[in-house]
Nucleic acid binder design. Structure first.
Length: 274
DNA sequence: TACCAGGTAAAAA
DNA sequence: TTTTTACATGGT
């Protein structure tokens, strides 16, 4: 089954984040393609002319893969707008065909965020790989990301044995067992999503901002507290100076209404440059 | 060896 | 109210 993607599109560049920090086993780079369990079946995604090929294909798989590969983003509009921002125009030109990926599973997005709090993405992926292997259903290459209900039945000591801190183990269990309605979040405005998420223990502003950016694909999401975003903004807009969270948050206003795509391009731009 | 890495909540001041 | 501290793993 073929899924067309607006050109230019560089599959390998766009999926680099699934390789550079090590895999957590849920979305796996394998033999030039990406594999993930969707609706109970492992799907392989590989680049072909004008888009990607899915095997096996299905309506459900196509919808989730579309989201995973960032089809909700309006890159044509972003690139046209970025032409008027000298710095950004240069960054965009350096990564032709880059389309940020998204996280289709909202529970997964929050668990990813919790594991990545404070520690390196590499350490987070290593810990999460053990979590996914322990509670997720193993398929050919990938494991299905553990269901919220399954995680709700886990224990703090089990999670501790996988490398979670006591705190993070409590956060993940608390989240899984909470009343948080992940479906409803998608219907709320950005500010209400943040307010709802930060009311849950273990989910702070940084986690909420990345959730808006990667799980809801909200155009104005701007993770100003993110260390990588701060470094990238400092590198491209402040002559390498380190910027405070407040400074970066304020600077986000000039990127309206494309803060999300701006942040993701600055991150990948810095990575390609450095 | 120490220190840093895509934070957060809770204790202490 | 604002500032400090503990946290656990993986890499350098």
């Amino acid at each position: 089954m073929h899924l067309p993607i607006p050109q230019p599109y560089d599959f390998t560049l766009s999926t680099v984040r699934f390789r550079e920090y090590g895999s957590d086993g849920a979305t796996v780079w394998h033999d030039g393609g990406l594999q993930r369990v969707i609706a109970g079946r492992e799907v392989r995604i590989e680049p072909v002319g004008g888009g990607v090929r899915l095997d096996p294909g299905s309506v459900e798989a196509a919808a989730e893969v579309s989201f995973l590969l960032g089809l909700p983003f309006d890159l044509d509009a972003f690139r046209a707008w970025a032409e008027h921002e000298a710095v950004l125009a240069d960054v965009v030109a350096r990564v032709p065909g880059f389309r940020p990926t998204l996280t289709p599973n909202r529970f997964e997005a929050l668990v990813i965020a919790i594991t990545a709090q404070q520690v390196s993405l590499q350490a987070a992926a290593a810990i999460r790989a053990r979590f996914v292997a322990r509670y997720g259903a193993r398929h050919e290459v990938a494991c299905e990301f553990p269901a919220r209900e399954r995680v709700a039945d886990a224990t703090v000591s089990e999670l501790r044995s996988l490398g979670f801190s006591e705190r993070k183990a409590e956060y993940v269990l608390g989240l899984a067992r909470s009343e948080l309605d992940l479906e409803r979040l998608g219907t709320l405005p950005d500010a209400d999503v943040v307010e709802t998420l930060v009311a849950v223990r273990g989910l702070g502003r940084w986690t909420a901002d990345w959730f808006l950016a990667r799980a809801l694909a909200r155009p104005a999401a701007w993770p100003a507290g993110d260390l990588g975003v701060r470094k990238a903004v400092g590198a491209f807009y402040a002559d390498g100076r380190s910027l405070s969270i407040e400074e970066v948050r304020t600077m986000g206003e000039r990127f309206t209404p494309f803060q999300n795509l701006t942040a993701q391009h600055l991150l990948v731009g810095l990575r390609m440059a450095g």
